[in-house]
Amino acid sequence: MIEVAVSVMITLVCGMAYTGIIILVMVDIIHGSYNMQRKVKALIFVIIVYFIMDSEILNLWYKHVSFSDYLIFYNSRAAGILQSILNIMELVNIVMFILFLIVSLRNQMDETARIMLLNEELTEANIKLEEYSRKSAEMAQMKERNRLAREIHDTIGHALTGIVTGLEACLVIFDLEPSLARKQMEAIQEVARQGMKDVRRSVNALRPDVLEQLTLDAAIERMVDEMCRSTGIRFDYICTDSLSGLDQDEEDIVYRILQESITNSVRHGKPTRINIQIERTGQQLEILIRDNGIGCRDLHKGFGLTHMQERLDMLGGTLSVNGNDGFEVRAEIPLRFHTGEVNVND
């Protein structure tokens, strides 16, 4: 607004004969780094000032000496030169303003074209990324299938072959040499036990990698911290007791339920806050995940909730969800009797 006041003063000094300086103020406002709302208000104000000064409406309240009155004191040649200078300045101002508008419009068109080109490139990159993600998922799925096929062939297949062969031999010698058959049965028993150990090792490879490195408590805290830092969502995590001493399948299910619930909240609920509470009372573990997102009144169980229910069914647990006020997932898991050690051989 200081620029407008200065330009008005200069215009008044010139007897309101030269208003071109106000146009320069318009250029400065258009080119300036004001926000759009402030820029529009300033332009409207300056345009109103320009028309007031140019139409000499101000004469109704403010009497002033016009520029033509000043020219009376000069001879006709000098007065003509001064008037011509004033006209040229007005013309130059108008031409420069028009050129500025043309250049600004051209720059805006170029910027729009550049943004459209970037959007097209971004869309193309997203399509390629989705295709790459799909192929990566297919390759990972195929790799996992191949790994399982190898494990089945090398562990279960080997164990079952030894058991079947041993049983066939026992059937042949059972009546003839019972003591030898007994020794054969003991050997079969050992093969079966070794096969079970091999199967457990294969299944352990399917566990979340973080549970191979950290305790369940530490793994949950890391997951919450990583999601908090990556999404900007506030997490309130409360666990009333240590989760140590759970069997591996119990740890896996607890971790997967939290992981799937947090993922669903972030992906579908658009929350700003997620509360996680884990309470262990006796042989019961209660898990509550609640967010302040948009919720889901018309709830249809998808793959994630169905998969969580299937996992809980394996332990005899229950799952309940509520999408009326935000979204809430409540899981109750009956724990096995633990003495503080995890027995992986049973």
Rank of each mutant, 00 (worst) to 15 (best):
D249P: 08
S33C: 02
D247E: 13
I94Y: 07
L86E: 09
I287H: 01
T123Y: 12
Q194Y: 14
E168P: 01
N93A: 12
F45D: 02
P271T: 09
T123K: 14
M26I: 13
I2H: 13
L58H: 10
L246W: 04
I52S: 03
A218T: 05
L82D: 02
T215R: 05
E120M: 06
D225M: 09
G162V: 11
C228A: 15
V27Q: 08
E177D: 15
L60D: 10
I253T: 10
I30P: 03
M96S: 10
T231D: 00
K183H: 12
L214G: 02
L43Q: 06
R311S: 09
V95Q: 03
E260C: 07
G316T: 05
Y237K: 08
Q248A: 13
A113L: 10
A79Y: 06
M142P: 01
I21C: 12
F97Y: 05
V8K: 04
T318I: 07
V321H: 07
I163F: 07
R311H: 11
K301W: 11
R229C: 09
I102C: 00
V27C: 12
N264H: 06
V95M: 04
Q248S: 11
Y237R: 11
C170G: 06
A17V: 01
Q184W: 00
R193A: 12
E260H: 11
A140R: 09
D298I: 04
M53H: 05
G166I: 03
A218Y: 00
I47Y: 08
E151P: 06
D247V: 05
S244D: 13
R201M: 10
A79P: 02
D325A: 08
L82F: 13
H338N: 12
E144C: 03
S230A: 12
G32V: 02
R256K: 09
E151H: 05
Y132C: 09
P208W: 03
M185V: 14
L129S: 07
V164Q: 14
F45P: 05
E221D: 15
S230M: 13
G293H: 02
L58E: 01
Q83C: 03
E111Q: 15
P208G: 08
I2K: 15
E341V: 15
L288K: 08
F67C: 03
C239H: 02
L216D: 03
L129A: 12
L312D: 01
I233Y: 03
D110P: 01
G162Q: 13
E341W: 12
